[in-house]
């Protein structure tokens, strides 16, 4: 017997993102087996860092959009990676981030325990080959702001009711 959720056309599968300030970390996503995103440089407004942490191994990488390595990400997480985790927890909730990265914590996870648990395993520094695709995903994400709205009805959106349950 299937439960009601499995027989629902409008079952909620993904909770919408929780609102957060975007100035410091304009883009965060759980995709391609990584927590990845774009972090604004603290010193140069024209520069951003592309940061990522792999699920399971926590292998990390951080470099600029021009592929220069981040000076802080040597041996352990830099401030960009810490900001990435903090903002991901704001956007998706700590539980979903923990599940995706395969981090097991003793108590209810938060950004600090996630960071602590991951750095304790002394994760390896990954290569920065993901930087280009992550950055292009960020640009694709930004391009959504430029797409024209329409007043022709989209009947398919009936499958996507709004929900009060944020991530």
């Amino acid at each position: 017997m299937l439960s009601v959720w499995e027989k629902s056309s409008t079952a909620r599968v993904v909770a919408p993102a929780r609102p957060r300030k975007l100035a410091k970390v304009p883009f965060v996503e759980l995709a391609d087996g990584r927590l990845q995103g774009v972090v604004s440089s603290g010193s140069d407004i024209g520069r951003v860092y592309v940061s990522s942490i792999s699920a399971g191994t926590y292998a990390f990488a951080c470099s600029t959009n021009n592929n220069r390595p981040c000076g802080g990400a040597r041996g352990t997480f830099c401030n960009h990676l810490r900001a990435l985790v903090t903002e991901a927890v704001l956007q998706y909730g700590a539980e979903r981030v923990a599940r995706y990265l395969k981090v097991e914590t003793a108590q209810e996870p938060d950004a600090a325990t996630l960071l602590g648990t991951m750095t304790q395993t002394r994760p390896a520094q990954g290569d920065t080959s993901a930087a280009a695709p992550v950055f292009s995903r960020f640009l694709r994400h930004l391009a959504y702001l430029e797409l024209p709205p329409t007043t022709a009805p989209l009947p398919e959106m009936q499958w996507f009711p709004t929900t009060r349950a944020a991530a």
Binding site: P16, A17, R18, P19, R20, L22, Q91, H141, L142, Y144, L145, L147, P148, P149, T150, T151, A152, P153, L154, M157, A166
Partner: peptide, 12 residues
């Protein structure tokens, strides 16, 4: 009557 738009996921 409807209006719709694509959006970044952080617009909520």
């Amino acid at each position: 009557a409807a209006a719709s738009a694509p959006k970044p996921d952080t617009v909520v």
